[in-house]
Simulated scan of single mutants.
Amino acid sequence: MELGISFEKILLIGLVAVLLVGPERLPRYAETFAKLVRRAGEFMRDTKSRVREEMGPEIDEVDWRKLDPRQYDPRRIIRDALFEDDPAPAQPAQSTALAEPAVVPVRTSMTRHEFTRETPPPFDDEAT
């Protein structure tokens, strides 16, 4: 995993640390920082192994890029959800062959209703 930290940046951070902390306290701070980095690495390895144990072998088959929320456009998701056709309801089972089949209206597309001052949208006083 590329973090985008170059050698020059690390050298600059080290130089600033030497100036701010001072040469007499720098070894102690460097040791503490190294312990922190080591513990963070162990934590990450433990977390990875626990996730692998719980998910099993299918974790290698997951396409993680497909699950990245940054790839989705919220406008497209909402538009698709609002204008997708509703599935037709299941028809009840017929008890006899002579019974007439039930006619179920199927909505094929969303219609948009324009509201005006004369025909305002519905309002429920008890809901608010």
Rank of each mutant, 00 (worst) to 15 (best):
E61Q: 10
F33P: 00
R79D: 07
E61M: 12
I10V: 14
Q71K: 12
Y72F: 15
Q91K: 15
F7I: 06
T32K: 12
T108Q: 10
Q91D: 11
R107S: 09
R112A: 09
G4Y: 03
V21D: 00
P23I: 09
A97W: 13
T108K: 13
L82A: 08
I5T: 12
G41C: 05
A90D: 10
E24S: 11
D60V: 10
T47I: 02
P89R: 03
V106S: 02
P74S: 05
D60M: 07
T116W: 01
T108G: 04
P87K: 10
R28L: 13
G4C: 08
D73T: 01
P57S: 12
R50P: 02
E31Y: 05
E8Y: 07
A17T: 03
P92D: 05
A34D: 05
P120Q: 04
R70P: 00
P105D: 04
V103Y: 14
F33Y: 07
V106W: 01
T32M: 12
S95F: 07
R45Q: 08
V106R: 15
T32W: 05
P101H: 02
L20M: 09
D68G: 00
E61N: 11
L20I: 12
P92A: 04
E31H: 09
A99G: 14
F123K: 04
R28I: 10
Y72I: 05
V51R: 03
L67W: 01
P74L: 08
D85N: 09
G22A: 11
I13N: 01
D125H: 11
K9T: 09
D80T: 07
D125C: 03
R52G: 02
L12A: 15
D85H: 10
T111Q: 15
P57T: 06
R45T: 09
L98N: 14
S95Y: 10
D60F: 12
F7S: 13
V16Q: 11
R117Y: 04
K66Y: 05
P89T: 00
S49E: 14
R107G: 12
L11I: 05
E118V: 08
D125M: 09
I59P: 00
A40C: 06
L98P: 01
E53C: 00
A34I: 00
Q94Y: 08
A127K: 07
T47P: 02
R45L: 09
D68Q: 00
G14R: 08
A40G: 10
A40S: 14
E24R: 10
R28C: 02
D46C: 13
L11C: 07
F83Y: 15
W64Q: 06
R117H: 05
D125S: 06
D46N: 15
A30R: 02
T47A: 14
G41K: 10
L26T: 00
R28T: 14
P23R: 10
G56K: 01
R39M: 12
P74F: 05
